[in-house]
Design a protein around this nucleic acid. Structure first.
Lengths: 192, 192
DNA sequence: TCCTTATCTTGACGGCGTTAAGATTCTAGC
DNA sequence: GCTAGAATCTTAACGCCGTCAAGATAAGGA
C-alpha cells in the first residue's frame, strides 16, 4: 500500500521506533509527538494510519506479542515433547523474555487490548496467544498427571506463578541478587 | 501545622480525594489540576504541600499500603497461628484486596516508590511492608516443613503465585466466571 | 500592631493528544 | 503525457496537562 510516498513506510516506522522507545524508556514516556519527530514527520502525520494513540499502541502490542510468541516457541522446541521439562522451559522463556525487556511487561498488561478468557470452555482462538500456548502445553504435559477436575486450577496456578515472578522481577525497585532463571526452575520443579 | 487556613486541611484532602479517584478510574486518569479543582482550590495550591505530582502519588501509595496491611493483618488474625491455614488466609487477603480495589494494583506496582529486597539477608525494615509480613508469616509457618536451603525459593514462589493471581484477576480484559477466592485456596492447598 | 510565615491565586511556559483545512505527492484512467 | 482523485503529509489551532514565578491573602507571634 506504500513504498515511497513522502516518508516511505511511515506506518512501519511508527510501530518499530515506538517499540524501541518503549523498550528503552517505558510506555509511560511515549508521546505521539516525539515519536513523529523521531520519524522525521509532523505531529499529525500518524493520524493517516491510526485513529489515535490507542490504536497505535494496540498495533505495537500485537508486534510485541509476536516477539513473545517467538521466544516461547523457541523455548518449547528446545525441550522434549510432552515432558514436564517442556513446561519448565516455557515458563523460563516467559520470565526471561520480560526480564530482558522489562518495559514490555507493563506495556502489554496495563493497556486493555487483548482479552483473556480463563474459563475451561473458552474460545482459545480469541485469547491472548501466549496464554493459549501455555494452556495447550499444560494440557499436553499434565494430561496424565493431574486429575481433570484440578486441571483448570493447575493451569491458572502455573500461569500465576510465572506471570507473578515476571512482574516481580521486572519491577525496577526490586533487588534480588540471585539468578531468576534458576530460581524459577527450582520453583517449578518443586511444585510440578 | 494547619487547621483552618484557607482550605482547612488541603494536604489530607488531596490524598484522600486522590485515592478515591484512583480507586474509581485508575491512576492513569488522575490529573493534578482536576484533583485541585475537586478540592476547590487552584491548580498550584498542591505545590504548597508536595514538590510535584510524584510526591503526592508517593504519599497516596503509603496510605494505600496501610490499607492493604490492615486487610492482611485482619486475614492473619482470623486464622490459627503458625498453621498453613494462616498462610492461605494471608494469600486470600492479598488477592481479595486487589480484586475489590482493582485500580490499586497498577497504582502500587507501576510507580517506583517502595523498594523490595528479596535477598535472604535483606533489611526487612526497609522493605515493602506487605511483602515483609508475608515473608515473616512464611518463615513461621514453613519453618519446620521446608528445608532451609529451599526456604527462599518457597517464599518467592508463594509471593509470585499470589501476586500473579492478583495481577491476572485485576486485568480488566480477563474473564473467569468462577470464584477467585476458592480458586486461590485450591491452588495454595495443593502446592502448600 | 506589625512582621513573618504559611497558604493560596493568577498567569504564564512548553508539551501533550487531537482535529480541521489545506498543501503536496502519487496512481489510475484516458 | 495529462488530468482527476485519492493517499499522504503540514500547518495551525483547541483544550488539556505539569510546573513555576510573582504576588495576594490570611494566620500567629512579637
Amino acid at each position: 500500500m506504500a513504498a515511497n510516498y513522502h516518508h516511505g513506510d511511515l506506518r512501519r516506522a511508527l510501530i518499530e521506533n515506538g517499540i524501541q522507545l518503549i523498550n528503552a524508556e517505558g510506555a509511560q514516556q511515549l508521546s505521539l509527538r516525539r515519536l513523529a519527530r523521531i520519524c522525521g514527520v509532523s505531529q499529525a502525520a500518524p493520524y493517516s494510519y491510526f485513529a489515535g494513540k490507542a490504536e497505535l499502541l494496540a498495533a505495537m502490542q500485537e508486534h510485541v506479542t509476536g516477539q513473545l510468541m517467538d521466544a516461547l516457541t523457541a523455548g518449547l522446541d528446545a525441550a522434549p515433547d510432552g515432558e514436564p521439562a517442556q513446561l519448565i522451559a516455557l515458563g523460563k522463556a516467559y520470565v526471561m523474555f520480560f526480564i530482558q525487556n522489562a518495559h514490555y511487561y507493563p506495556f502489554l498488561f496495563s493497556w486493555p487490548t487483548m482479552t483473556i478468557d480463563l474459563a475451561e470452555d473458552a474460545d482459545g482462538s480469541r485469547n491472548f496467544p501466549p496464554y493459549e500456548l501455555l494452556r495447550q502445553t499444560a494440557l499436553a504435559v499434565l494430561g496424565g498427571r493431574v486429575r481433570p477436575e484440578h486441571m483448570q486450577d493447575a493451569i491458572i496456578a502455573l500461569w500465576s506463578t510465572v506471570h507473578g515472578l515476571a512482574g516481580i522481577a521486572t519491577m525496577k525497585h526490586v533487588h534480588y541478587g540471585k539468578d531468576w532463571e534458576s530460581t524459577l526452575e527450582g520453583i517449578l520443579r518443586s511444585q510440578g
